[in-house]
Simulated assay, not measured.
Amino acid sequence: MKKILFVFVFLGLLAGCKSSSTDVTPKTNVELLAGTSSKKWKVTDGTVLYSGLTVNLVSNQPPCVTDNILTLFADKTYELSEGAVKCNMTDPSVIVKSTWSLEESPLKISINKFIFLDYVIDNPVFIIKTIDEKQFTGETLVKYNGNNYVATITFTAQ
């Protein structure tokens, strides 16, 4: 009788210790950027190489500029919205609303219009250098006073 009880306990332990192997499908780049419906991002770092010097575009900006939110939607639309602090209380909550696209090779996101530091960049293409669920960094060309500069921008998920 003890042997039968021991066998049942042993089989119960084996069944309880069974490893559950769940396959985790890696997220696509669209899912990393927009989630399953939408995902919010904030610019947390931005630099540009200007006359041989790296200039930080974010560190000395007021919160009314640095707290703005870029929301990427899975249907390839986006909104750039004011954050918690507005520079001008009469400014609309949504700064710009349009579409975005993604190319896989090389990995790059195109946004119809991006506004940062009161500077409008029409049709910027961000070549994505790093991407994961929490952050992505891209480079884009910025034209200023007739010259092209490479800006490196980091977006952090909110």
Results as ranks from 00 to 15, higher is better:
Ser19Met: 11
Ser19Ile: 14
Ser19Thr: 14
Ser21Arg: 07
Val24Tyr: 13
Thr25His: 11
Thr25Asn: 13
Pro26Met: 10
Pro26Cys: 08
Thr28Met: 09
Thr28Ala: 09
Val30Cys: 01
Val30Ala: 08
Glu31Thr: 05
Glu31Lys: 05
Glu31Pro: 01
Leu32Ala: 07
Leu33Gln: 03
Gly35Ala: 03
Thr36Arg: 06
Ser37Trp: 00
Ser37Gln: 08
Lys39Asp: 00
Lys39Ala: 00
Lys40Asp: 13
Trp41Pro: 12
Val43Tyr: 02
Thr44Ala: 09
Val48Tyr: 10
Val48Lys: 09
Gly52Asp: 06
Gly52Tyr: 05
Leu53Ser: 14
Leu53Gly: 08
Thr54Gln: 12
Val55Asp: 14
Val55Asn: 14
Leu57Cys: 00
Ser59Phe: 10
Asn60Gln: 11
Gln61Pro: 00
Val65Ile: 14
Val65Tyr: 10
Thr66Ala: 03
Thr66Asn: 06
Asp67Pro: 06
Asn68Phe: 02
Asn68Arg: 15
Phe73Glu: 14
Phe73Cys: 12
Ala74Lys: 13
Lys76His: 12
Thr77Tyr: 02
Tyr78Pro: 10
Glu79Asp: 15
Glu79Val: 12
Glu79Met: 12
Leu80Ala: 04
Leu80Tyr: 09
Ser81Phe: 01
Ser81Met: 09
Ser81Tyr: 01
Ser81Trp: 00
Ser81Val: 04
Ser81His: 01
Glu82Trp: 02
Ala84Asp: 14
Val85Ser: 08
Asn88Met: 07
Met89Glu: 13
Met89Asp: 13
Met89Gln: 12
Thr90Ile: 11
Thr90Ala: 13
Pro92Asp: 09
Pro92Trp: 04
Val94Arg: 02
Val94Pro: 02
Ile95Arg: 01
Val96Phe: 09
Val96Asp: 07
Lys97Ala: 13
Lys97Ile: 04
Lys97Tyr: 03
Ser98Glu: 14
Ser98Gly: 15
Trp100Val: 07
Ser101Glu: 14
Leu102Trp: 08
Glu104Ala: 14
Leu107Trp: 10
Lys108Met: 10
Ile109Arg: 06
Ile109Tyr: 06
Ser110Gly: 08
Ser110Cys: 01
Ile111Asn: 01
Ile111Met: 05
Asn112Cys: 00
Phe114Asp: 00
Phe114Lys: 00
Ile115Arg: 05
Asp118Phe: 02
Asp118Leu: 05
Tyr119Val: 12
Val120Ser: 12
Ile121Phe: 08
Ile121Met: 12
Asp122Ala: 13
Asn123Ile: 06
Pro124Val: 10
Pro124Cys: 11
Phe126Val: 05
Ile127Gly: 15
Ile127Asn: 15
Ile128Asn: 05
Ile128Val: 14
Ile128Cys: 07
Lys129Gln: 15
Ile131Asp: 04
Ile131Trp: 04
Asp132Gln: 02
Glu133Trp: 09
Phe136Glu: 01
Thr137Val: 15
Gly138Gln: 03
Glu139Val: 11
Thr140Ala: 10
Thr140Leu: 13
Thr140Lys: 02
Leu141Gly: 14
Leu141Lys: 15
Leu141Glu: 14
Val142Asn: 03
Val142Ser: 05
Val142Thr: 05
Val142Phe: 06
Tyr144Pro: 07
Tyr144Ile: 15
Tyr144Gln: 15
Asn145Ala: 11
